[in-house]
């Protein structure tokens, strides 16, 4: 197994970098979209419920199926993969963002309202800072989820660590299978650990 790595380090590194590329682009777009949707949801209450319902339905559909449905429209490759991944992440992000912002201590929110803050000001100055940890938890979840689903995207020519797995499967190459598994699992575990560590440090507001 180690010889394989020695002989074809480029294959492994390429796959890893492709994977990281997909994940990073996806996360950036996901966060921007989720942020925008969250702000709208906070202003118009019923929207939050509709959005979360909508995305939860989509989230329960297997990724391969969503890829298959989108290919006639956007073709094979990274683009389709990123679109699907961004849509999946909306469920995780919106659910965590909205509940995080809403579950801030109601007493504090009421005090702010009593002082004369507008809802927008309350959102920015009170809810956002106090919900930091919950918000980051959403990002953490989305990141790990994206790493996982992105492996499947290899089947639609998006590249990434999944190619090692699919190739290994096709040619019954145990080395590729092992490396594909180790790298994808390793990436997920490392990122999970890092983000989890950061999440813990985002402490509560000091009294």
């Amino acid at each position: 197994m180690l010889e394989f790595a020695a002989k074809h380090p480029d294959k492994l590194i390429d796959a890893l970098l492709e994977h990281l590329e997909i994940v990073l682009i996806t996360l950036i777009i996901s966060l921007l979209l989720a942020a925008a949707l969250t702000v709208i949801s906070m202003k118009i209450e019923p929207v939050s419920r509709i959005l979360i319902q909508f995305f939860s339905v989509i989230y329960s559909v297997p990724s391969l199926a969503l890829f298959a449905l989108l290919i006639p429209v956007t073709g094979l490759g990274m683009k389709t993969a990123i679109i699907v991944l961004v849509i999946y992440n909306q469920y995780l992000l919106l659910r965590n963002f909205i509940s995080g912002l809403n579950e801030v201590d109601p007493a504090v929110v009421e005090a702010a309202r009593g002082l004369g803050m507008t809802e927008m000001q309350i959102l920015m100055k009170i809810r956002l800072p106090l919900a930091k940890r919950a918000l980051f938890a959403g990002v953490h979840l989305a990141a790990v989820s994206t790493i996982g689903i992105a492996t499947i995207a290899a089947s639609i020519n998006a590249g990434g660590l999944g190619t090692l797995l699919f190739d290994g499967l096709r040619t019954m190459n145990t080395d590729k299978i092992l490396w594909g598994s180790i790298l994808s699992a390793g990436l997920a575990i490392v990122v999970n650990g890092l983000l989890g560590g950061i999440e813990k440090r985002i402490g509560r507001v000091r009294q």
């Binding site: 299978i177 594909g180 598994s181 994808s184 699992a185 997920a188």
Partner: peptide
């Protein structure tokens, strides 16, 4: 956390 595809294959 391990990607499902990895577990499968």
């Amino acid at each position: 956390i391990i990607p499902s595809l990895a577990v499968l294959i």
